[in-house]
């Protein structure tokens, strides 16, 4: 138990350093983008949280499958933590994206394919949280939530395809100007910064995941003790 805590503390320090380095890269090392100015710097952490949120449902589904196979509640706690972090990092991603889009695109939100897909996925995460919170003390909820995670992860390809068929894919981020859309050319320094920031956010994600799963097991222990001593 103790060594476990020690490892997670060490990981916490690694995360702290990684985030500091990420901030340094985003604010000092990366050059200011020519047309957008400093607002573009939010983009580095935007992409990081976006990646974290997108991978959440995959890890959650794998953990849910392991839980259904083995019945070990440890996997359920990991799955739950992933979905919860999906809500958190999804919200960060949406918020930073809007802050970036307002001055650059001139609008907080646009029903572009990528944005629409992401919003629907985020709503799936939120629905999962609603399901979880609606019957927190019910022992059957873990299995039911695992099934919903499956439904969610199978829905992901459809969520990705449908808005693209609906709106068409508008490449708005990198590379050449495809459809008259606003683009910018990324410099090597920016790419390095992007990479560093994604790694930093992923470190933070893993740290939070471990903490949240550990918290879940403590909660389960408390519930067990309560039952034992009849409170």
């Amino acid at each position: 138990m103790n060594t476990k805590r020690n490892w997670s503390d060490i990981w916490g320090i690694v995360t702290l350093i990684a985030v500091m380095v990420g901030l340094y890269f985003a604010f000092v090392y990366a050059p200011t983008e020519a047309t957008m100015g400093s607002i573009q710097r939010i983009f580095y952490f935007h992409m990081g949280s976006n990646a974290a949120s997108l991978t959440s449902i995959l890890i959650a589904a794998i953990a849910a499958a392991l839980f259904l196979r083995s019945g070990n509640l440890k996997y359920d706690r990991v799955s739950y933590a992933c979905m919860e972090l999906g809500v958190l990092f999804g919200a960060i991603s949406l918020a930073t994206g809007m802050i970036w889009a307002r001055p650059v695109w001139g609008t907080w939100w646009t029903w572009e394919a990528r944005l629409t897909s992401f919003l629907i996925l985020w709503l799936v995460y939120v629905a999962y949280m609603m399901l979880r919170l609606s019957s927190a003390n019910d022992p059957t909820i873990a299995r039911i939530a695992a099934v919903f995670t499956f439904v969610g992860v199978i829905d992901v390809p459809f969520i990705m395809i449908a808005p693209r068929l609906w709106r068409g894919l508008h490449p708005v981020l990198f590379g050449t100007n495809a459809g008259g859309e606003f683009t910018f050319n990324i410099t090597p320094e920016m790419l390095t910064t992007l990479f560093v920031c994604i790694v930093a956010v992923m470190c933070l994600y893993i740290w939070l995941l471990v903490q949240r799963a550990h918290l879940g097991s403590l909660q389960a222990q408390v519930a067990e003790l309560r039952e034992q001593y009849g409170e």
Partner: peptide, 14 residues
């Protein structure tokens, strides 16, 4: 309350 909350996000592509 739960059914619409769970169903609609999954149902969007359909």
């Amino acid at each position: 309350v739960m059914l619409p909350v769970l169903l609609f996000p999954v149902l969007v592509p359909l």
